Amino acid sequence: MSNTFSGNPQIGVVSSFSELVNTHFQGIMNAICWHRNLAGDFKEIVSKLELKDHITEVSPDDLLALNLSEEGNKAREIILNDLQLLTDFGASPVLNLLKKYERDEELGFISTDVYSYHVDRSPIGTDTFLCTYHGAASDIIPNDHVEQKILIPAIREQLRKLHDGPEEEFEDFLKDYFFDLHYQPKPYAEPVNLGVGHLWRIAVDHPAQEALPCVHRAPVENDGEYRLLLIC
């Protein structure tokens, strides 16, 4: 299959939902892409949905209530089918109309919002699925292109001051406040944009996971444009 992700050892490329959920992460491969070129007018759907806050969850009933053109209806059917596939698989997909996420800039020296490169963590065996139907798409980055922020001396020193507690509790403090999930790109880092329309499965940090968790971030939104994002 010829596409922009072929030949990247971090990414496995598949051509069906069945392959997406049944392909195993291995070695440095911690992201799997169901590569698709979707038909339909997703912009029309975005234009007819109502944003109630910075992030609005869109239900299947919300989609079905829209009066759409033939191309808009094609897009709607694709989204509804993706939601059903993931639900039948046992996942809990959410469709979001998104203006922006909350920023975390309170500390100044470290950011822990989704715009920062981070990994997802779960106590149980699970993966993260995501698909951007419209708007800016997320980035992933190879694990050897980043450094854990808590290991950067200047940041670690600031975190010690913030902790202001017994040394033996410091590592627990870093985990309790999710500082250990965030990463800084190295100077030579080469992120990969996930693109629009592809359904991705990325590795999560959990005890049974054999691959490294996939480091990713939310994109800065395009000015004046909402994102339509499926995630679970």
Rank of each mutant, 00 (worst) to 15 (best):
M29F: 06
G40Y: 05
L68Q: 02
H198R: 02
S138W: 12
L80V: 04
I28D: 11
G195N: 10
V94H: 14
C214V: 02
L181F: 10
L68W: 06
N22G: 06
H198Q: 06
A65E: 11
R201I: 02
T128I: 14
C131T: 11
S92Y: 14
L230I: 08
V21M: 03
R76Q: 15
C232S: 15
F42C: 02
T87A: 14
N30G: 10
D139T: 05
L38R: 06
L63I: 07
L63D: 01
I231L: 13
S122P: 08
S92I: 12
A218R: 04
G12P: 04
I11C: 00
P93M: 09
I155K: 02
R201A: 10
L159F: 02
H145E: 04
Q184E: 14
I150T: 10
I124L: 15
A218N: 08
A211M: 06
P207D: 07
N81E: 15
L162A: 07
I231K: 10
F178S: 14
S122Q: 05
R76D: 01
L107P: 05
V146S: 08
D180S: 06
T128Q: 14
L85D: 08
L95K: 01
F89W: 12
G27D: 15
G40E: 09
L68H: 02
P142E: 00
T23H: 07
Q158T: 09
D172H: 13
N73A: 12
A208K: 14
S16F: 07
T56C: 00
V13R: 00
Y101R: 14
P207K: 07
E168T: 13
P60E: 15
F170L: 03
P185Y: 00
F25I: 01
D120C: 03
V119K: 00
P187V: 12
Q209F: 07
D164K: 15
L68A: 08
L63M: 08
H163D: 03
E105A: 13
G224L: 14
C33M: 06
Y101F: 14
R201V: 01
L20W: 09
T112E: 08
V192R: 09
A136Q: 12
R227H: 05
E190A: 11
A189S: 10
L228E: 01
F170S: 02
H182P: 00
T126V: 07
I79K: 00
P187K: 13
K186A: 13
S122E: 03
Y177D: 08
G108F: 09
E57P: 06
